[in-house]
Nucleic acid binder design. Structure first.
Lengths: 194, 194
DNA sequence: TTGACATGAGAATGATCGTTCTCATACAGT
DNA sequence: ACTGTATGAGAACGATCATTCTCATGTCAA
């Protein structure tokens, strides 16, 4: 256990995952070479491959890490936007509005990664599906506040609408899809039995 | 103008686009080599490159072709499903249900391609956005039948919901997202002023 | 037949990339 | 200082791929 000659393994991990996040999100998985990750993180090739024995495992670690970071950001951002007493489900759309307008927005990293995933790497598919499962679960919690009699399909439908908006905002480089989706959800929620 | 020594240029074009469609949709753009297209179509490398001077242009031709074919399929499938007197907007979901359950389903080719598209190939982005624009326009036509006073955001929201369902069905390999989206849209449409 | 040109089959080229290897250096324990 | 081990820097390797080139085989006009 060397205190810190150049960089601890934990520090390296964080540096690599941060670099991987920026690169993979911006250019897609196949658009990023391992040497790009090395150059962006400053970690040597040897260290990169001792931490992650293959690119596939680095991608899996990135997806897992991004899932946690994104969910954290999402929940706290919703809290911030629903502080004013707004419906927390609508606050989720306000949270996403911030993301969509941030520079470098390229849609959902998980949906994008699924498009690049072929039959063989099932571990990536599993992480992606699990991320969407958790997202829907969180939306279900938001929607159930004050609506104990909401239909069973509501959380699934909210997940569909949120991700549809995320995708369409990327397609059109615009927030209009998100605004329209928010309007539709507001109107829909008014008809849900409380 | 040779009548048909081996294959006319038009025949070659169709063969190549059909092969490209199957390959690009199943494996993604970067997952398909030009030699794969040659092998699947039987067209020689030379002819491939005289028809499409680069892979980028082949991809653009594929996207354009798929746009036309998909819209054609979509409209006729909706007609078929709304024949029974159902709301044509809901019929759109029934049409997509058929697609989603077909073998080899991998979500929307245009959304998938956008995930693989980097800043440089703007022509692809334009085709993709134009495809989604036309999809929304068609949904607007369906929704406006009998609803002259629908809110302005309705077509955009329907586009968001349809594509969200298409994506989530691919993520979960399930039709549940589509069913939930259909239920939400049915309930939403009941509140729209006619 | 002859020659000019078009085409197919697929090899060659040059670039990129995932992964491994070399070598020189640095540090640990003695 | 001395040996053994770990590390960084980056070259090397082998595969893949987009694109071009070669050459052998047509095809058409005269």
């Amino acid at each position: 256990m060397s205190p810190a000659a150049t960089l601890s393994l934990e520090e390296s991990r964080r540096t690599v995952l941060r670099a991987a996040d920026e690169l993979f999100y911006a250019r897609g998985i196949t658009g990023v070479a391992m040497s790009d990750v090395r150059d962006a993180s400053g970690v040597s090739m040897r260290r990169l491959y001792t931490m992650y024995p293959s690119k596939r495992e680095l991608v899996a670690a990135w997806l897992t890490d991004r899932h946690e970071a994104w969910m954290m950001w999402f929940t706290t951002s919703i809290d911030r936007h629903s502080a004013a007493g707004a419906d927390p489900v609508l606050a989720a759309f306000d949270a996403i509005a911030e993301w969509v307008t941030a520079p470098g927005y390229r849609g959902c990293a998980f949906i994008n990664s699924l498009a690049e995933t072929n039959e063989i790497d099932d571990s990536h598919r599993a992480i992606i599906a699990s991320h969407k499962h958790d997202l829907i679960e969180h939306l279900a919690n938001l929607a159930s506040r004050g609506r104990p009699n909401a239909p069973l399909w509501l959380p699934t439908a909210l997940g569909v609408i949120v991700d549809g908006a995320i995708v369409h905002c990327a397609v059109f480089s615009s927030t209009e899809p998100l605004d329209a989706a928010r309007s539709a959800v507001r109107q829909l929620l008014e008809t849900i039995p409380t």
